[in-house]
Write a protein that binds this DNA or RNA. Sequence first.
DNA 1: TCAATACTTAAGCCAGCACTTGACAAACCA
DNA 2: TGGTTTGTCAAGTGCTGGCTTAAGTATTGA
Lengths: 111, 111
Amino acid sequence: MLHSASAQSAKIAATFHALGDPTRRVIVEKLCEQPQSASLLAAPLGITVAAVVQHLAILEQSGLIRSEKIGRIRTCRLEPSGLKTLEDWVSQRRTLWERRLDKLGEVLDEE
Amino acid sequence: MLHSASAQSAKIAATFHALGDPTRRVIVEKLCEQPQSASLLAAPLGITVAAVVQHLAILEQSGLIRSEKIGRIRTCRLEPSGLKTLEDWVSQRRTLWERRLDKLGEVLDEE
DNA sequence: TCAATACTTAAGCCAGCACTTGACAAACCA
DNA sequence: TGGTTTGTCAAGTGCTGGCTTAAGTATTGA
């Protein structure tokens, strides 16, 4: 399955933007351990639930988390494919960099 | 070699903050292919060299790039260990998440 | 049914950040 | 030596983004 380059870069942009904020990173780290409600996430963060909900929206848009509302409780959980997007980007950059070194090696060998 | 948890998290914070900006991501992507000077980086970005230099300082602080000034030219190159920091964070989260699933499986098996 | 809980939404505040301008310094070159 | 290139630094500007408050909706439980 192929994605357009722009779709991929849009997703990566959203992901990095989401994880660029320390509070959102803490949320993601908590959700790695177990799913939690919005108010449960807010408590240790020292910010209002309203603020947390705003963070959750950004995280959800980026695909890093998923949330489901049952009754009056919204339960959030990690979406592992979001981490995969990140992993792919990093390994792609790494590959590019290594390929460059390989080429450089070839040139040096020829001389 | 051990690093303190706070030192690691400070580095990760700097890395995510650095990559949270689209312009800085473009810079990193360019530097994956080849080292470049500040003005060379600025040209296709449509911003001033002064702005690029500010971005470079942030990227360098995060450990994602390294730069060296020879004559009047500052050459920037990728620092692969910066990408490694990122890779480590992701794989750590992934591991946490998988471990949770494993535990969940055990509990279900016991019942 | 009434109150408490859990979240949602909108509006506004303010600090931080990306960027510019302008003035400067150093290196290169004709 | 004078002009061009390349980068540095400081100050200022405008906008984004994280947060709050306040008012609302839906769900739950006594």
